[in-house]
Amino acid sequence: MSHRPPPPHTDPHASPHEGEGHGGSHGDDDHHPHVVPLRLLVGVFVALLFLTWATVAIVEVDLGAFNVWAALLIAFAKAVLVALYFMHLRWDSPYNSLVLIAALLFVVLFLGITIVDTLQYQPRLDIWQTGN
């Protein structure tokens, strides 16, 4: 989605040079916010609703083991939309995105190692529980 300049408005403090479309990463003396265009917000909202419909619809389709990955993929796409546009990361300092990505990496690390570990001992645990 391309970045549109904010629509004209009456406020005198929303400066003229923010219309140049570079987001809020310049103009250090004063705080001129980057304003997300309303049409972009609506577009993201509609896309989120569509993806919600998709995630419900895909349950009916048998994709085997891929079903859970499809659900996660759709959820991830929705999360990216929310983070980039609603949470403004697209126009923010990359440092904020770095904080988020670092947190997610650690969650993945945590999950991955735990899963590897549990898959190692679960078969024995099952044997122990069922006596087979």
């Binding site: 300092s93 947190a103 650690f106 969650v107 999950l111 735990t114 549990t118």
Partner: peptide
């Protein structure tokens, strides 16, 4: 804003623990 993002990162990590419990149970 950076401070808020750091807080949100801790929130993600907290829920990450629960997602981990979920993943372990579901995979087994």
């Amino acid at each position: 804003k950076v401070g808020m993002w750091v807080f949100l990162a801790t929130e993600i990590l907290m829920f990450g623990g629960l997602f981990c419990a979920y993943a372990v149970w579901r995979s087994n």
